[in-house]
Design a protein around this nucleic acid. Structure first.
Lengths: 111, 111
DNA sequence: AACTATACTTAGCAATACTAAATACATAGT
DNA sequence: ACTATGTATTTAGTATTGCTAAGTATAGTT
């Protein structure tokens, strides 16, 4: 199967999933990549060039805020992203949209 | 909700849904638009500029073939699209991909 | 010193649903 | 006859977004 179709399906849900993961606690980019990979059984394996632009977009839209960590014990400095109230509300809306959308798709497929 | 998100979710499933509708019988463009609109309860309301390029793509890829109808009783001439064997097999693959994909999305959302 | 893993950044590409307009014909209303 | 409406197809151009690919930087390991 041409990977292009999988790519296209991802459009519109990655932002929703990332907001969902940020709801539990603030996280940094690399962490999000490995969590998504693990939670999806290897389906959502994001490259940095995919994830980081999404995070910048979330921040531009006021759905998340970021802050650099103060590295202790010679840790690498990390940029933590935290979901905002607006982001939480928006995630809920996106999830409702997803449920409606996937419901309709399944209805047509089960014809 | 910004309609952009709905648009993005559609990417990658419209082709699958149109192939699905063509599996029952050959259909013409306008017919597909109204069937999709009706079956989806108003969620998939395609503009011509969305549908026809998809049909041309299906034909280019050998997933469907088209023929002009011979209009009788002063009917308008219509271009009928018929799914090919390759198209049927491909639809099945896309549907499997959709099931896997939407399953993973729901798993993450239900965390 | 070289290599690997971690972590972030960015430039440019590809795919596809969209807007918007044009063409053409049949039929119904005035 | 003229206009508007519904059907039906075509096509030019735009926006979004996930991708490839390369680069920067630091810490720990060999």
């Amino acid at each position: 199967m041409n990977p292009k179709y999988e790519q296209q399906m991802k459009k519109g849900v990655l932002e929703m999933l990332i907001l969902k993961l940020l709801e539990k606690e603030e996280k940094y980019g690399y962490q999000l990549i490995s969590e998504l990979k693990q939670l999806s059984g290897g389906m959502f394996v994001l490259k940095e060039g995919t994830l980081y632009p999404i995070l910048y977009r979330l921040e531009d839209e006021g759905l998340a805020v970021s802050k650099w960590s103060v590295p202790r014990d010679k840790e690498v400095s990390r940029k933590y992203y935290k979901i905002t109230e607006k982001g939480t509300a928006f995630q809920k809306e996106l999830q409702t949209l997803w449920n409606t959308f996937s419901g309709h798709v399944n209805t047509i497929l089960e014809e």
